[in-house]
Design a binder for these strands. Structure first.
Length: 227
DNA sequence: CATTGATCATGT
DNA sequence: ACATGATCAATG
C-alpha cells in the first residue's frame, strides 16, 4: 500500500506522475483488474486514484487527505476537457439543521480545497484505455464561494421549512440537490411542512458541470465556450 | 441505514 | 444534447 502523502507538494507530485497513464496501466501497478465498464462499478475510477495516491480508502474522514485539508475528486471529461457529469459532494443534512450555517457546514469543509483529477470519460473510449489527465488543486474564489453559499442557503431554507418535496435539481445556480440513494425506495428522516417527522429519499449536494467546467477551463486555459 | 466512491439511463 | 432523477457496490 502507498503511504499517505505528508505534504501538499508530495500529493501534487504523485498526482502529476499519474498523468498520461491509462486506467489499465494504473490498475495493473496495484494488482487491480480494470472492469469492462462502470455500469456495476460506478466509483471504480475514484477508488483507483485513491489507491494510487495513498488516500485512506473507505475512511469516514471528512476529507480524503485530512492532514492536508484536501479532498480528492476525479472528474470525467470529454475530448475538449469539459466535464461529462455533475460532481457529488456530500449527503445533505435533512434534520438537526437549526443554527447550521454555511461556515459550519459539512459541504463547505469538503470543497474548501479540492485535488481535481480529470479522467477521459467518453463512452467511445474503452474504460481500460481511458487516460488520466493533469491534476490541479483548487479552492473556491471569493466569488465562487459567495454563489455556493447563496445556493446552499436557498436549498437549506426548503429543508428547514419542511419543503423538501418542493426541491428539484433545477434549484441552485452552481449547487444542486438530487437523490443520493441505493434506489428510489430508500428513506431517511426529514421534516414535513408542519414540522412533523417524515421519511423521504436521501439527497446529496452536486456541483453542476457548468461550475466545474469553469474551474478546469480557468486552470488549463481552455476555451470556456464553443461556436 | 449512512457513508464512501460516482455514473447510468431516460425524459425533455 | 444535456440535465434530472434513478441507481450500483463496498464498507461501518
Amino acid at each position: 500500500m502507498i503511504q499517505p502523502p505528508t505534504t501538499e507538494a508530495q500529493l501534487l507530485d504523485r498526482a502529476c506522475s499519474l498523468a498520461g497513464f491509462s486506467l489499465k496501466e494504473l490498475a495493473n501497478e496495484h494488482h487491480l483488474i480494470c472492469p469492462l465498464n462502470l455500469k456495476k462499478n460506478k466509483g471504480w475510477v475514484g477508488m483507483l486514484l485513491e489507491t494510487c495516491l495513498g488516500a485512506s480508502a473507505g475512511s469516514k474522514a471528512e476529507q480524503d487527505f485530512q492532514n492536508l485539508g484536501i479532498e480528492l475528486k476525479s472528474i470525467p471529461i470529454n475530448h475538449a476537457g469539459k466535464p461529462l457529469e455533475t460532481t457529488f459532494v456530500c449527503v445533505a443534512p435533512l434534520t438537526g439543521v437549526q443554527g447550521l450555517t454555511w461556515e459550519n457546514s459539512h459541504i463547505r469543509n469538503k470543497i474548501s480545497r479540492v485535488l481535481w483529477i480529470p479522467v477521459e470519460g467518453e463512452k467511445e473510449i474503452p474504460l481500460c484505455e481511458r487516460r488520466v489527465g493533469m491534476p490541479m488543486i483548487w479552492q473556491p474564489s471569493e466569488e465562487e464561494e459567495r454563489q455556493l453559499k447563496a445556493d446552499w442557503e436557498e436549498l437549506m431554507e426548503f429543508i428547514v421549512l419542511g419543503k423538501i418535496h418542493d426541491i428539484t435539481a433545477k434549484h441552485g445556480q452552481y449547487l444542486q440537490l438530487r437523490p443520493k440513494a441505493a434506489n428510489s425506495k430508500a428513506k431517511t428522516e426529514a421534516y414535513g411542512k408542519n414540522g412533523e417527522p417524515i421519511k423521504t429519499l436521501p439527497r446529496g449536494f452536486y456541483l453542476r458541470t457548468q461550475f466545474t467546467g469553469q474551474i478546469l477551463a480557468r486552470h488549463f486555459s481552455l476555451p470556456s465556450s464553443t461556436t
